[in-house]
Design a protein around this nucleic acid. Structure first.
Lengths: 239, 239
DNA sequence: TGCCATTTGTTCGTATGTATT
DNA sequence: AAATACATACGAACAAATGGC
């Protein structure tokens, strides 16, 4: 028997092919019978069945005995406007959904070179680092890591934990208003930890936004690295 | 002993973890010794060695007997500012690189529902569809599909083929200026065709931008779906 | 109604690849 | 190098549900 040359098992490869076919619409509505798929992918029907089982567990497919296997329509992506005054709660409420969030982790770190440049502080400066999860109607949409000056915002962790909102936490720390200065975007694969928090398949994709928020004097107050689940939302920029 | 429950062999998982660590910078410059990595990932040293061998073959790592294993620095991402007046050539020139582009394909199509909504035209309206490739210093950065009204811009294909620039082609068709109204962003895996045009590995990622350009009277002139190679550039939004 | 083709669900057995001891 | 345990893959047969005639 031929080995799995690239370290990925056959059922997994078939599963990925099916997932891609569903995503690009070439497999619409109803899947061909297992026997036909087995022939098409040159694998045993067991292998096809295992691939289907995984996708069914993820909610993409639904197998009905005697009838066939069907493609579940995916939820549409939630539009997420990004601008100078982006606020997660407002964006979610604007779509008639219930926003929510929770603190995953908080710790104190020292600024590395990259963060120091973003926050315009000295490398090694003490920072609060927060890992937060953001949900709409109970569905996880994004995970964010944010860095704040520990000197300027000593109680930010406590304030966030109590209020569940960055805007409100900063207000309690004396900052009445802030705005987004810059957003940089790339795409990445989900890290295992993020996949866990987002209740997502580990081979999903995220839009990674690295952003700087500044106060009224244009001084950075927050560095932010947000991983948006690419299947669940799309970022919208109005120019 | 934990099995490979998810269909991916252990050396492959370790390989992916190392690749991710290299990508996000948590494994910089020099790798820890194999024995330490084996302990960290809770696998045998043989497994770590196999994982490293794969990455070394791909050029990400370089193992030197008796010294250690080192990370080869990847090319940095090209920053690509996006705003109301985004022009590919200007962005590339601003990074001291030589912009270029070529027409991959051009044909006439009829507007489907989605494009009709974007272009504010009737479904079924005749359109020119252009598939274009954009490069900097000979490195492919993005592939774009754009749609233009065939009635309003009858010679757009010819004009683009001759000038290699959308701005210039529209000018020849009588449109002196245009601007970006909206950009929507998601992330996807590379399609096989795009991977080919971008000279990229077929499991690479793209940032997918769906945008509308409008004329002085705010009427849509171009619908645009651009796939930016996520490893080669990052989109920058100033707010 | 019953019959039959189709399709998914289940259970054997057997062989091979993978990771560790 | 050998032994062990587990995961993956294939083949064959049969059971159970569905739908058309």
């Amino acid at each position: 028997m031929e080995p799995t040359e690239d370290g990925v098992s056959r059922w997994r490869r078939v599963s990925d092919l099916l997932r891609a076919g569903i995503a690009d619409g070439s497999l619409a509505d109803r899947l061909p019978p297992e026997a036909e798929l087995a022939e098409r992918f040159a694998v045993n029907r067991h292998t096809v069945r295992r691939a289907i089982a995984v996708l069914a567990r993820d909610g993409l497919l639904r197998a009905e005995q005697g009838r066939g296997t069907f493609v579940n329509a995916p939820a549409p992506r939630l539009p997420y406007p990004v601008g100078p005054r982006t606020r997660f709660s407002e964006n979610v409420l604007a779509q008639s959904r219930q926003p929510g969030g929770r603190l995953i982790r908080a710790d104190r770190v020292r600024a590395d070179a990259g963060i120091a440049r973003l926050l315009a502080c000295d490398p090694g400066a003490p920072l609060h680092r927060l890992e937060t999860l953001h949900v709409a109607d109970g569905v996880p949409l994004s995970v964010a890591t944010s860095w704040f000056s520990a000197a300027r915002f000593p109680g930010i962790v406590q304030a966030y934990a109590e209020s569940g909102s960055v805007t409100e936490a900063l207000r309690r720390e004396g900052l009445l208003d802030y705005r987004r200065r810059e957003t940089r975007l790339t795409a990445e694969r989900l890290s295992p930890g993020d996949a866990d928090h987002l209740s997502a398949s580990p081979d999903g994709l995220v839009l990674v936004s690295t952003a700087i928020d500044v106060d009224g004097e244009d001084r950075p107050v927050q560095a932010l690295r947000t991983r948006f689940h690419a299947d669940r939302m799309e970022l919208v920029f109005r120019h």
